[in-house]
Amino acid sequence: MSCNLYEDLIMEYLDGELICSEKENLKSHLQECASCREFLSIQKKQHTMLRALPLFTPGKDFTIKVMKDIHRKKDALYVKKILLFLLMPLVLGIAVIYLCWPKIVLGISLVTVYAVNGIKMLITVTSNWIETVIQWFQIAGKILSQLWWVQRIIFKIILDIFNWHFLGYTAVALLFAGTFLLAKILPQHKQS
């Protein structure tokens, strides 16, 4: 074994990494080799020196700076979260529009058609507004006359056929009947 290899063993010995048999081997070599003894001596001194060398230290306000940095990064993260929270609905909206685009186009087209027709009808109605008002008065008169008859029939039925105990049921039934009647009468007048 050459001295070069013993030098490595010496360093491992100083680092406390040698097993017993290697230690014995090194010990016997050191007794014979002056050069390796000198190497050991220098390495021992070097070890002591290196161990004694103190660590460097950062500026006094280092910890404060680190904590400020952490706070700053936390705040930035918080702002990012808020922005994300606000942007999420926008992104979702865009996604929905993108995915349902054909349906939305169809919807918009239908609404446009209805709106145009509606405007057309409105224009027609307002151009003949006098005629229309007269028609409305006629319709209102007929409704009122029909209601008068209905009223009479209702009272007759209530007084002649049913006794007062059935008034509640009759009222509800009449409400439905009245609604139905109105629905029947109104279109007839519109058609005429």
Partner: peptide, 11 residues
């Protein structure tokens, strides 16, 4: 930079 003070420094 400044060294951290350690007892070994006196060595």
């Amino acid at each position: 930079p400044v060294f951290a003070e350690t007892p070994e420094e006196k060595v």
